[in-house]
Write a protein that binds this DNA or RNA. Structure first.
Lengths: 189, 189
DNA sequence: AGTTTTTTTTGCCAAATGGCAAATGATTTC
DNA sequence: GAAATCATTTGCCATTTGGCAAAAAAAACT
């Protein structure tokens, strides 16, 4: 629980009173493997911070196929922001693919925090900007490369993920089929 | 020049004094076709807002190939943020591919504005968050699809761009070769 | 250990894409 | 309007990838 505060403080200053307030509202949430933090179609009711573990962000496309959009390994905000803010149905699933330690706030608690701490909004915006930059950089790398280059990049980016998650997730993230990925791996090893 | 203020005000409130200050520092900048707003390798010295026209964001990859990362058509911030903030060499080129109307601020002017208007930082963060969301959505769509689907999506996304810019830019953006794109177009039309 | 169940690898073939160079078409320039 | 320049299409063939189903391997369960 105490890990959240230093993370937040990286992005803006808060006084002790504000810190205590956040700590008081924070709820620790442990997710087991394959459990969902939030689901597409439902309204996101929690604002979470991933402190430990790996989350898979995925969606179902028009043909009903499951699509892994990306993985979250490091400290990060967890929520479908549009859904959380506007009570719209979420468009993605947030699924724990390893045991995860999450610190979560209910919609109401989070609103109260934002009212009590005006800086919070800016802090969140900064965090989001940073996370988005990462995401854009990673996605950009995917577009222009062929399968094996994508896979090699994946290995660099998530070195400790390969042997922990199903190959199908990786293939979906890379935008290739599982059998192609399997063949690619054979040529690389 | 007067278009900038309403754009900024969408993202936060400013009083008249602050607005005047921004207007005073703002410099109109018109770029002709193919001119660069900023170049990779150089340090970004301007903070710009694209008010009109189309900008191409591109880079040169390891093999010396030019890579179109994306296009900016709508109102948007223009700068390599990391380069601008930290005086690091920029990683991308920002090139006008049509006549562009830009409102620009020098590094020094922008710093002065940020000091004089604390809200400005938050406003910029909000703008960036929004732009990044768009970018992520667009990039995600590129990864998992095949060439013709990518092209069809491109047509929807930038309906008035197809006939104004070189095919090679589009192909590069889509992550396919120009000849493949040409063949794809033949099957679609 | 033996049986399911799940995950990964293969085989086979069709379809999509890349690479390269030449041909065609469009635009600019003088 | 002819020449030169630039952009796009096409041909040819090698390589990559997809789709599908079966086989093999690994993991989970009893």
């Amino acid at each position: 629980m105490e890990e959240l505060i230093p993370y937040i403080l990286q992005f803006g200053k808060l006084n002790q009173e504000q810190i205590d307030l956040i700590s008081k509202k924070a709820k620790a949430l442990d997710l087991g493997k394959d459990a969902y933090f939030s689901e597409a179609g439902k309204i996101a009711r929690q604002f979470g911070f991933l402190m430990k573990g790996v989350i898979r962000v995925c969606s179902i496309d028009d043909e009903g196929k499951e699509l892994t959009k990306y993985f979250i390994e490091e400290e990060s905000i967890l929520t479908d922001l549009n859904s959380f803010d506007n009570k719209a149905p979420a468009t993605v699933y947030l699924q724990a693919i390893t045991e995860c330690k999450i610190i979560a706030f209910s919609k109401q608690d989070w609103e109260e925090l934002k009212n009590a701490i005006p800086e919070l909004d800016n802090i969140v915006n900064k965090i989001i900007s940073k996370l988005m930059f990462q995401k854009v950089r990673r996605l950009s790398a995917l577009v222009s490369e062929d399968g094996s280059t994508r896979y090699l990049n994946f290995l660099e980016l998530y070195p400790n993920l390969v042997n922990r998650i199903p190959l199908s997730y990786i293939a979906s993230y890379l935008g290739i089929t599982q059998s192609s990925l399997s063949r690619i791996r054979k040529t690389i090893l």
